[in-house]
Simulated assay, not measured.
Amino acid sequence: MDCLQENFFETPVHLFSGFAPRSRKVVETPIQCSTTAFYKFFKKQANFLPNVCGSVVQTIGLVDSNKSWVNTVGSRKVIEILSAESCRDTAEKFKYIVEAIDDRSRKITYKLLEGSLLQLYDNFTVTLQVTSASTAKWTIEYQKKKPTSEDPDFYLKLFPTINATVDIYLRSNDD
Rank of each mutant, 00 (worst) to 15 (best):
D89E: 12
V63D: 02
S83Y: 06
T59S: 14
S105C: 10
F154P: 03
I101A: 11
E10T: 08
L117A: 04
K95N: 04
S86F: 05
F48H: 14
D175E: 13
R104W: 08
G74I: 02
K93V: 09
V63L: 04
Y39C: 03
L113T: 02
F38T: 03
S132F: 08
F8C: 05
R171F: 04
Q45R: 14
S55H: 07
E80I: 00
K67P: 00
V130N: 06
S132H: 13
T127C: 09
H14D: 12
K93Q: 07
V52H: 01
F154G: 03
S132Y: 07
A84L: 08
V57C: 13
K67S: 15
T148G: 05
G18Y: 13
T127S: 13
F16V: 15
K157W: 03
D103E: 15
I101E: 10
V70A: 15
K144F: 02
E150P: 05
R106W: 09
N7A: 11
D64H: 14
V70D: 11
L15N: 14
L120P: 00
D167M: 05
A91M: 07
A136C: 08
K107D: 04
K95A: 09
N173G: 12
A46S: 15
T148P: 00
T139F: 02
S86M: 10
K145I: 09
V26S: 11
W138N: 00
Y155G: 04
S65V: 02
V13Y: 03
S17F: 08
P147N: 09
E141S: 11
G74W: 05
E80H: 04
L112I: 08
A91K: 03
V166A: 00
